[in-house]
Design a protein around this nucleic acid. Structure first.
Length: 204
DNA sequence: GGAAGGATGCACT
DNA sequence: GTGCATCCTTCCA
């Protein structure tokens, strides 16, 4: 295992309040190791999804399928799946085994390995917006389905650290989630969190 | 074997 | 701000 005193552990992921975890993940650092290189980025935007009471969640009300099975695992594993046949989306499973809660990582601000991220995305523009969007950040970090089920506590390829960035409550904004209009009244839940006035968020 | 869907991104006005 | 292309996975017959 990569040595890191700041790596988030099961006690962080396996708490029951997925909304709280989504909020606390803002400002944390996502780390991805590829070929011995480590890419890092600060999480600037998340969304909470809860299996029990949330129509937007893939695993709502016992919809237990091959795809959503990962969400039922104990907190601390990655749930990666393909959307629109094109985009990989990266989620962090939370809560205990049997509870289908997860936090969608929607955007990061690149910190280390920016050139490699640019290469993965074949992107020439401003790095601050390079990973501002769930499909973009997975591409920048080269996250794909092979990382589904990856244990973020044990893995050498993908994990989350507390970067020591202090985020005040005033900097964390909440809003309704995006792209889930099919979820009816649950689409209005203010379960999306993002860093105030940060350029690396998908939309404002 | 086939049909339907989908937690987006980008081009364009 | 808005419209739509796009294609792999999943689920069901």
């Amino acid at each position: 295992m990569i040595k890191s005193a700041n790596r988030l552990s099961n006690s962080f992921y396996q708490r029951q309040d997925v909304v709280l975890i989504a909020k606390e993940l803002i400002g944390k650092e996502i780390c991805r190791r590829i070929d011995g290189k480590v890419l890092r980025g600060i999480i600037t935007e998340t969304e909470a999804y809860s299996g029990e009471n949330d129509k937007a969640c893939h695993a709502h009300l016992g919809r237990f399928t091959k795809r959503t099975a990962t969400m039922y695992k104990a907190g601390g594993v990655a749930y990666v799946y393909l959307c629109y046949g094109i985009h990989h989306l990266f989620n962090i499973v939370t809560n205990m085994e049997g509870k289908a809660d997860a936090v969608l990582i929607r955007a990061i601000e690149p910190v280390i390995g920016i050139d490699f991220m640019k290469e993965f995305r074949n992107y020439k523009g401003d790095p601050i917006k390079m990973a501002a969007g769930p499909g973009k950040l997975t591409q920048a970090l080269n996250i794909n389905k092979s990382l589904n089920n990856e244990n973020l506590v044990l893995s050498n390829n993908l994990w989350i650290e507390d970067a020591g960035v202090n985020i005040s409550k005033e900097q964390i904004m909440s809003a309704k989630r995006i792209g889930i209009d099919y979820a009816e009244e649950d689409a209005d839940l203010p379960w999306r969190f993002y860093l105030k006035e940060n350029k690396s968020v998908s939309r404002t």
